[in-house]
Design a protein around this nucleic acid. Structure first.
Length: 298
DNA sequence: AAAAGTACCTGCGCGC
DNA sequence: TGCGCGCAGGTACTTT
């Protein structure tokens, strides 16, 4: 579910409440939400309890909160994850898997609730390792960004809104791929932050068919696509992300408004806003692709 | 090595 | 009413 704009909305909300907060206790009601956490449930609880949260950093769709110079709490929302910040008296949220009880800098108790219907998301504690380019690892405007990244996130490429994202270099790599352009856009090892919604939206704006071979597209067109996609992500961040249902919420449980700006995703059968042809949905790679059959020719 | 396919989960809405 | 099926914002692992 959540792509860069939704994750950024969550990151900003967490930062607002949690900078300088300390962890008082942890409740884990479903251990399946601790993903790839090598220290186990015990290690997770022991290491996090008593730690101070200094900042919230994001690269692509991954979030992390450093708890020391070498360790961080890492989170990913998967398809259906939410991180809610609630006061202790707030009604229980269905499908809450982990609760981290904290005390804010002002001394107020709060709960960080990790909620996840499908369990594709998860939390872990991981080592922070130097970034391969020695540059700040991700987006964290509230604090000085460090050039360290969780080991499990190190393979994720810089995202389209990262100041150190190198569009020309990425466009060059894209132009060499022997895959359909949508598969390339979704490759988080090449460029990160885009998922199924924003891929379909970017391709509609660029008038590209999702299965057009990337190697048949010029480097200049790839660069244009990158710029279009970055602009879509920026606009969606400004709207608080895209919400269709109960699956995406910010840390206060509120929906975003970008769904009102969608041109292709979820618009099956509705007229294309450029030419009036009905938007088509095709099954593709175990999901769906939405496009205008007239504007976006293979 | 790169590209494609599959596994991991729960729950909703649809047609029969 | 009930059931099976398709569908949902992603990533990691396996296979070709």
């Amino acid at each position: 579910m959540p792509e860069l704009p939704e994750v950024e909305t969550v990151r900003a909300g967490l930062a607002e409440h949690l900078v300088r907060a300390t962890v008082s206790s942890i409740e884990i009601s479903d251990i399946r939400s601790l993903k790839r956490n090598v220290s186990g449930v015990q290690g997770f609880v022991q290491e996090l309890t008593g730690s101070t949260l200094e900042s919230v950093v994001r690269r692509g769709k991954f979030l992390w909160l450093p708890i020391s110079n070498s360790r961080a709490l890492v989170g990913h929302l998967g398809m259906s994850g939410q991180i809610l910040v609630r006061t202790p008296d707030f009604a229980p949220d269905p499908q809450t898997r982990v609760v981290i009880h904290v005390k804010t800098q002002a001394g107020d108790p709060l709960e960080i609730r990790f909620v996840d219907q499908r369990l594709f998301g998860g939390l872990m504690i991981d080592d922070l390792v130097p970034t391969s380019d020695q540059l700040p690892a991700g987006f964290s405007p509230e604090a000085e960004a460090s050039a360290v990244i969780p080991s499990t996130v190190a393979h994720i490429s810089r995202d389209l809104l990262d100041p150190h994202f190198n569009a020309a270099a990425v466009a060059e790599k894209m132009a060499k791929k022997n895959s359909g352009i949508k598969r390339v856009l979704l490759d988080q090892n090449l460029l990160s932050g885009i998922g199924n919604i924003y891929a379909d939206e970017s391709l509609w704006l660029a008038k590209l068919h999702y299965d057009k071979q990337a190697s048949s597209i010029s480097k200049k067109k790839h660069l244009e696509l990158i710029e279009i996609a970055a602009e879509v992500l920026r606009k969606a961040v400004a709207q608080g992300g895209t919400s269709f249902d109960e699956q995406y919420k910010n840390v206060n449980g509120e929906s975003g408004y970008f769904s009102q700006s969608l041109n292709a995703y979820g618009m099956t059968g509705l007229p294309c806003k450029r030419c009036g042809t009905p938007i088509k949905r095709e099954a593709w790679a175990n999901r769906g692709s939405h496009f205008c059959p007239k504007c976006q020719k293979r």
